[in-house]
Simulated assay, not measured.
Amino acid sequence: METFRHYKNGELCRQECVDNGRTKPDIVTEFVEGQAVLEQRDTNGDGAFDLQVRMSKGKPISKEEDSNHDGRMDRFTAYDDRGRPLCVREFAANPNEPVKTTRFKEGELCSVEQTDNGRMVFTRFQNGKPVKQTIDENRDGRPEQTITYNQQGTVDSALSDTNRDGRIDSWQYYRRGALSRTQQDRNHDGKVDAKSEYDGGRQIRLIMDNDGDGHFETLTAFDTAEWTKVTDLVDTAGRRGQRLSYSGEVLRKKEVFDTATGRLVTFEKFDQAGKIVMSREAEDGTGALLTWRYDAEENAVAAEKDSDGDGLTDIWYHYENGRVKKVEEDRNKDGKPDLWETYDAAQVVVCQSEDLDFDGTADIERRY
């Protein structure tokens, strides 16, 4: 690179630096009383100056840049009296409104105000790290989101106004940069009605107040070994009434409990398509258990009953086209049926047989 210096009255007034083989200078510096006051640079070699720095007493006062080399200056920097940046303004299509304004205090980053897709994002910094950020989606002066940061500069909390009514309705809290817990006001009545907990950024629990009465009646766990999620429905006293177990989004098991005693009342099992394959019901106060089994069309095909709650089946129901076709009963508790009944399509008994001596063979048969 060649350097050409121009003098006036014996003092340096202009200096030009030209890259070998080029006709236009790449750097031009103007001097007053021997001190540089203006420097212009052509940083990409297209023949046009895209950087201009004004100086006083050897320190920069301002800087203008054409960052995208379209012939228009779009980044302007102002400096304090010690040559440290005070403010950087960046422009896009509108030359009267900056898309980004960066401010400094004593040379340290203080704040950044940026327009992004029509929204205003303002970030405040301390010791070079963000401490608070607000996002005003519609630029009405009321931010829809406020983000706070910890001393390490990672997100500590994020508060949002999701429906833009001027009230916060979503709260997110972080631990070591990962989401830890959230709260939501989903119906925007001013009360929290959903709370979530996270482990390593993965949701593990969710409790919800679905009817807005202030009582969280739906408790869902996402960290069980067997199921994708397990949801408990509880009453105002916290007593469980139902438990729903899911694989993916498909209900695979449903349990209904007596809230007064905690005793299991009804149990239903579903296949991968969500169709019922088995159900079991306990009769109130008797200890009896009745179990149904279903086909692929969810029609009952068989049922078993433990009528005294001793853990042994003593009544068997056989179905055809969803109706009881045959019933077998073990009346002496030896594990073998000794009473048989056959039903017609109207569910009326048409034949009854009994094994009176319990040898496994019917001794009496009645037809109706």
Rank of each mutant, 00 (worst) to 15 (best):
E97P: 00
D70T: 05
E11L: 12
A296Q: 13
W227P: 11
G201Q: 04
R367F: 09
E65G: 03
K8A: 13
K195W: 06
Y79N: 00
P98S: 08
R181Q: 07
D213C: 03
Y79W: 12
D42R: 00
G45C: 05
D209L: 02
Y198N: 01
S245E: 14
R181S: 15
D50C: 04
T146K: 06
E297V: 07
K325L: 06
A288P: 02
A178K: 14
V230F: 10
I315F: 07
L233Y: 09
E283A: 12
Q352L: 09
E320R: 15
K195I: 07
D284A: 15
E297Q: 13
N299S: 09
L289K: 01
Q133N: 13
N138H: 07
A93D: 10
E304S: 10
K336R: 14
N163Y: 04
A194P: 01
E217R: 02
E320T: 11
R263A: 10
T361N: 12
R22F: 15
N138G: 04
G128S: 05
D81K: 11
K254R: 12
R89E: 12
T259M: 11
I207R: 02
H318F: 11
V250Q: 11
E16W: 03
R41M: 10
E113M: 15
Y294C: 08
E304M: 07
C110N: 05
A158I: 01
G241T: 01
K191W: 15
Q35C: 06
D19L: 14
D232F: 13
E341K: 15
H318N: 00
T313M: 07
D74T: 08
S111D: 03
R202H: 06
N163F: 01
K269M: 11
R240S: 02
V121Y: 00
R243I: 04
G241N: 06
R175F: 00
E226W: 02
D81P: 03
D116Q: 06
N117W: 08
G177K: 00
G10R: 00
W340V: 03
